[in-house]
Computed example of a mutant assay.
Amino acid sequence: MRQDKLDSIDLRILAALQREGRMTKSALAETVNLTPTPCWERLKRLEKAGYIKGYRAEVALEKIGSVTTVMVEVTLKQHRYEDFARFEQAVRGIDEVVECYATGGGIDYLLKVVARDIDTYQRLIDRLLIAEIGIDRYFTYVVTRAVKTALQPSVATLVPDGDIAPEKTSGRAG
Results as ranks from 00 to 15, higher is better:
12 R>S: 10
12 R>V: 04
13 I>C: 08
14 L>I: 07
17 L>N: 10
18 Q>G: 15
18 Q>T: 12
19 R>F: 13
19 R>Y: 07
20 E>S: 13
22 R>H: 10
23 M>L: 11
25 K>M: 12
25 K>V: 13
27 A>P: 06
27 A>K: 05
29 A>T: 08
29 A>R: 03
29 A>V: 09
29 A>H: 05
31 T>C: 09
31 T>I: 13
31 T>V: 11
32 V>S: 03
33 N>V: 03
33 N>K: 09
34 L>K: 07
42 R>T: 01
42 R>P: 11
42 R>W: 04
43 L>H: 07
43 L>R: 04
45 R>S: 10
46 L>R: 07
49 A>D: 09
50 G>T: 11
51 Y>Q: 00
53 K>N: 10
53 K>A: 14
53 K>D: 11
54 G>V: 06
55 Y>S: 11
56 R>S: 15
56 R>I: 14
57 A>L: 10
57 A>Q: 06
57 A>I: 15
60 A>W: 01
61 L>R: 13
61 L>K: 09
62 E>C: 08
62 E>Q: 09
63 K>C: 12
64 I>M: 12
64 I>C: 06
65 G>F: 01
66 S>N: 14
69 T>N: 03
70 V>Y: 06
70 V>W: 00
70 V>A: 10
72 V>Y: 01
73 E>K: 08
73 E>L: 13
74 V>K: 05
77 K>G: 00
79 H>M: 04
81 Y>S: 10
82 E>S: 05
82 E>C: 00
83 D>H: 05
83 D>K: 00
83 D>G: 06
84 F>V: 04
86 R>W: 14
87 F>W: 03
88 E>R: 13
89 Q>M: 04
89 Q>G: 14
89 Q>L: 08
90 A>S: 11
92 R>M: 09
94 I>D: 00
94 I>A: 07
95 D>A: 13
96 E>V: 00
97 V>R: 00
98 V>T: 13
98 V>W: 03
98 V>E: 09
99 E>D: 06
103 T>Q: 05
104 G>I: 01
104 G>Q: 11
106 G>W: 02
108 D>P: 03
108 D>K: 02
109 Y>P: 12
109 Y>T: 04
109 Y>I: 04
109 Y>W: 12
110 L>H: 07
112 K>E: 14
112 K>G: 03
113 V>G: 12
114 V>R: 15
114 V>Y: 03
117 D>S: 02
117 D>P: 01
117 D>I: 08
118 I>W: 03
119 D>P: 05
119 D>G: 08
122 Q>G: 05
122 Q>L: 11
124 L>C: 10
125 I>C: 11
125 I>D: 00
127 R>E: 10
127 R>Q: 14
128 L>K: 06
128 L>T: 07
130 I>Y: 07
131 A>C: 13
131 A>L: 12
131 A>H: 08
